[in-house]
Design a binder for these strands. Structure first.
Lengths: 334, 334
DNA sequence: CTGAAAGCGCTTACAG
DNA sequence: CTGAAAGCGCTTACAG
């Protein structure tokens, strides 16, 4: 049987209260006793049960991470940084792939509540705010990479608007004048903002931009390809394409290849996210990088700070990080 | 305050034992009482605390997943299937990226023990078997995608040897005679087996194969590139390259591009794993697919079966799944 | 069919 | 500085 606090106490000839105190470094314990107890803990290979301490101490030292799909490179990279920072601070990570389905979101949230996780990081979208809203009252939550309007929580995002501008600026500097955009659903604030930044920048450059050059896709590569094909088969062919994420850019690559359009000589492509995919395509993608590592770390820090304060009603921060243009070889002068 | 079992019991005018029984469907309860209690649970929005039940009922309904790096596409795809099947069966998934470092492995394992997870799925390598061996005595564990010799646990792997053979056969059928291999460390059994299958097939075809055409890489794309460059700069240039995983193939692609070697016309490439990366490269990779979804599901099933039986000493299975050649466009007739 | 009571392994006032 | 005792929210024999 595994050693319990009772075994240690008995062996050391002290009370379990004393042992508990040396474990947690609380209260005053004479140095002599402390060392004795520590030695015995060592000898018995005693590891406190986190279950028992959770039941009394109120913390489980685990947090949940809600993402659409852990197998999507963007989210797996986010997950890695969240995991690392969490681990650093003593928290384990429970991953929850929601497929952006409300049903799965609700089920996972109920589960996380039952497991009494200390907090939840939300990287998934939901039309149904009720769930999140009711959450924010009862449990520390924070959002990463997603804006969730009207929900009171810490939020860490990249400056999507500025990212859109950067993409446009880069393309403009290369001399392009015929633009197209592949975007995810405009229900997502991030997509809207990227598009808005992009359009705004073009407008400032005096470029008019037609609605017909915007295609909305779901999140899959295939859909990116399909929409890109439609784009390429229209009358006016763009020379520059902005894709709202790397996955869509991959779809666009496939479409371009199929149509005999060469990147970057015929078509310059800028994508968003800068996941591993951006380094794997040929040519490698010029991408607006989200600082995923930084975002994960920061989000965990904010959440954990909130846990410590213990007050759910702390001032919530909205941290907006700067994106960065990573130039590779998918863009070229006109 | 959240409702507890006491609140429900009081409200229903029964004992907490009775409530417990209706929650768990154990024992005999009159239908009338059952319904009453259920109704009250509903009204109070009562959710049993999994912490408390874990402390008494002995199960936490969580499992740990040890992988080298969740941000690596292969492991994130594995994780997704493990998560889904686990969730299906009522288990949450705690992810642990080990970077294949013994120190991290040990720390994570200690943590998972303290959290009393019901079982651990091991997808990470370790030279230090002691840790795993001592584990296998105390807690249900299962391995996925890795062979860990001398440790008594369920194992789900792909037939690496056969995969290597398939790669060679495919290349032979295309008429190639000059082969090279990019492998991960041969400390990994899976790498050894892939190589062995590959060599064996060549040998059977009467092809002699020189040691100098084998390069060992670490797990990174950059290293794959570096080693591939060395390969390409040798006297005898191969026309067919087998890469032990998709990441290394990506490195090889980069090297080939740099050297002006065209794929597949100058060089045919077969990789292993068939992650998302294989679909993203240009040309898309012909890859020996591991049935990751099936592997994850199966591994969870085996582990959970073992949990139910409760007997750590059940007969351990070693399930070997067939790989599959997925032809894309990185291979061509000589 | 139902409930009183002990116990899971801790933490936390409180008293000394 | 140290310990007895209550309590966290459940489950599980056991008795009735």
């Amino acid at each position: 049987m595994k050693a319990t606090i009772y075994d240690v106490a008995k062996e050391a000839g002290v009370s379990i209260a004393t042992v508990s105190k040396v474990i947690n470094g609380k209260g005053k314990i004479s140095e002599k006793r402390r060392k004795e107890v520590l030695k015995i803990m060592e000898r018995l290979q005693y590891q406190p049960s986190m279950i028992a301490s959770a039941l009394t101490g109120k913390k489980t030292y685990s947090i949940g991470l809600l993402v659409p799909d852990i197998s999507n490179p963007f989210f797996s990279e986010i997950a890695r940084s969240v995991e690392d920072q969490g681990h650093q601070l003593g928290y384990s990570l429970i991953i929850c792939s929601t497929d952006n389905k409300d049903e799965r979101i609700e089920k996972y949230i109920a589960l996380l509540k039952q497991k009494k996780v200390d907090g939840i990081i939300i990287g998934t979208g939901s039309d149904q705010l009720d769930v999140l809203n009711s959450l924010s009252g009862t449990m520390p939550i924070a959002a990463i990479g997603r804006e969730v309007p009207d929900v009171d929580m810490h939020t860490v995002v990249v400056d999507d608007y500025e990212g859109g501008r950067m993409a446009a600026r880069h393309l403009l500097e290369l001399g392009h004048t015929q633009f197209a955009v592949l975007s995810e659903s405009l229900k997502l604030i991030s997509s809207r903002e990227r598009l808005r930044g992009f359009s705004q920048m073009l407008m400032e450059a005096g470029i008019e931009w037609s609605e017909s050059m915007l295609k909305i896709c779901d999140y899959r590569v295939e859909d990116g390809k399909r929409q890109a094909l439609e784009l390429f088969r229209q009358d006016s062919v763009p020379t520059a394409l902005f894709c709202c994420n790397d996955m869509l850019a991959v779809g666009a690559y496939q479409a371009a290849k199929q149509e005999g359009i060469r990147i970057p000589s015929d078509l310059s492509v800028v994508s968003f996210d800068n996941t591993i995919l951006a380094t794997v395509t040929d040519p490698p993608l010029t991408s607006i990088a989200q600082p995923m590592e930084h975002m994960g770390k920061l989000c965990v820090d904010l959440l954990v700070d909130q846990l410590k304060i213990g007050n759910v009603a702390v001032m919530k921060q909205r941290v907006v990080l700067r994106p960065e243009l990573v130039e590779r070889h998918s863009t070229a002068p006109l």
